[in-house]
Design a protein around this nucleic acid. Structure first.
Lengths: 226, 226
DNA sequence: ATTACTAAAACTCGAGTAC
DNA sequence: TGTACTCGAGTTTTAGTAA
């Protein structure tokens, strides 16, 4: 992880951005200090230390200083660059939420079968869900937080409607997979907007039947993230 | 340049590489400490400070800690990444050397016209140089250093030869431009290997005639770098 | 105007330790 | 085991200042 003192990285980067890779650049310690948000004295010391460490080549020219990175100095920056780059790239772009299968309120099945919803499901998520939702009890605080995060992401919105007697709220869908393989949709309902300790899943088929999952089984939901 | 304390960047990067961008990851302060080459106490403090700065979201789960980067935390890393990236990329890949045109030793003209050299010039740099070299007096210490750097780079080697009476040393050529436009070659001669306060240029044409440059004029040589 | 020294203030770290 | 406090030692930064 580099025996490079980290504060010097900023200084090196500043010099590099001024073009100090191949040519000597002429600077003053106070301008450098200003740019790295340190005092003139600190900048002067950094330069001295960088030279001592063989990271820069430093010459006095008149009252100013001429500096150029050495190969070692350049390599240090390149190393740090690659370290961050790898961290950024190896970062998986999925949210994982674990929970326990519980029995849902039977009413879900009824609502989801209403014509006002099914027409939209067909066009927006590509299928009419099997009647009935899969309820997942989320136990870990951090998974509830993750669910909150999903809730703040834009999803596929199924609009609410009214049949004259009453109104039915919107449903927001997030494509996801159950236990890494079963495709389904995580849904948020307008009416239960507040409760994030239970996640509801819908799927084209009867998941309980297809997978043999029973209440009390631990499951994992994986939601892809942009 | 970020009000982010730099030492925390390492911690953030470590968390990110463990996948803390989208999901809470479960860690102990001592394992984190080990990874960032700091003590358990330092790791604990860093986490506390990162949370305070709004860079991570932190939850106790049992005896361990669950951590996730916030948008702000992620942005900080991305910012630093882009900063370094820009520095690395905006870095011009040329060496610039300034100097003053002086009269060369007339002998240069003679040597460069020898068959043993001209044949090689034709094949290696594409032309037979105008007889006579252009001598540039380098005044700034840092430009002499730059010249030394060029001298350490691999160039196009014109081999020495012998005509039976005496031997002629090698010549090394570096394609460059004079004052940003005139194409020419910077040459190093075996016999003057040591003196880097004068640079010698050769060109296909008579530069003095073509440009009207006279002794005492300030000129700039630009040498492209891999 | 510069650089860079000294001394003191401000930080950061880790050992010891409480919980 | 865990986290995270206090406190002393070491390090870094800055103010003041010499050259």
């Amino acid at each position: 992880m580099s025996e490079l003192k980290i504060q010097h990285l900023i200084t090196l980067t500043e010099l590099l951005s001024k073009g100090a890779k191949h040519n000597f650049i002429s600077i003053t310690t106070s301008s450098l200090g200003k740019n790295i948000h340190k005092s003139q004295q600190a900048a002067s010391k950094h330069l001295l230390e960088l030279e001592e460490g063989g990271l820069i080549q430093r010459m006095m020219s008149g009252r100013k200083i001429s500096v150029k990175l050495t190969k070692k100095g350049y390599d240090q920056i390149a190393d740090m660059y690659n370290l961050i780059k790898n961290s950024l790239e190896s970062s998986p772009s999925e949210i994982e939420i674990g929970g326990i299968l519980v029995s849902g309120m039977g009413e879900g099945a009824y609502y989801m079968s209403l014509k006002g919803y099914t027409k939209q499901f067909k066009t927006k998520i590509g299928y009419v869900p099997f009647p009935g939702t899969l309820n997942i009890k989320i136990e870990k605080k951090e998974h509830i937080e993750s669910l909150r995060q999903v809730n703040n992401m834009p999803g596929k919105q199924i609009d609410g409607f009214s049949d004259g007697k009453r109104t039915y709220g919107w449903v927001r869908c997030y494509s996801c997979t159950l236990n890494g393989k079963i495709p389904c949709n995580l849904i948020f309902l307008e009416r239960t907007h507040h409760d994030l300790s239970v996640a509801e899943l819908i799927s084209e088929f009867d998941i309980r039947k297809k997978t043999g999952l029973k209440n009390g089984d631990r499951i994992t939901i994986t939601i892809p993230v942009s």
